[in-house]
Amino acid sequence: MAYGEKLIDHYENPRNIGAMDKHATDVGTGLVGAPACGDVMKLQIKVSAEGIIEDAKFKTFGCGSAIASSSLVTEWVKGKTLDEAESIKNTQIAQHLALPPVKIHCSVLAEDAIKAAIADYRKKSGKPGAAHVNAEPAKVAAE
């Protein structure tokens, strides 16, 4: 199948690859997906005292669409409040990248990753948000 330009751009020049200290209290980490399903996304956000997302980083094991979806959301969440970031919908991601139907699940995973990162941050900072968290974050048992 042929991919769209924006998707290829995010795949070839992914934005915000990297990692932040997952133990820091101003960092929220979301790890979603499973290797057996062929997609794992790790998304991290750094939140200011005012509750604004100052920085975001990701690492993804997955197809080009999964990489592009996660790269895109790191761009989108920066500068947003937690509530704003939480309102990002997978359909917006899919539409922006013109994902083919068989790749819609990649955008769902990206949405889940944001929610998981926000939930992790709220848990750690002790500032529970109003919004209901749907996503089931993976638990890193080794820690």
């Binding site: 997906g33 057996a36 399903c37 794992v40 993804t60 089931e136 974050p137 638990k139 080794a142």
Partner: peptide, 24 residues
């Protein structure tokens, strides 16, 4: 691999099998 969270974990010495992955 530089962008792979799995690679990162393995380099950190985490056994991927010990992680309880979310259903998806």
């Amino acid at each position: 691999r530089e962008m792979s969270p799995l690679w990162e974990m393995v380099q950190e010495g985490i056994d991927l099998k010990s992680i309880q992955w979310s259903d998806h």
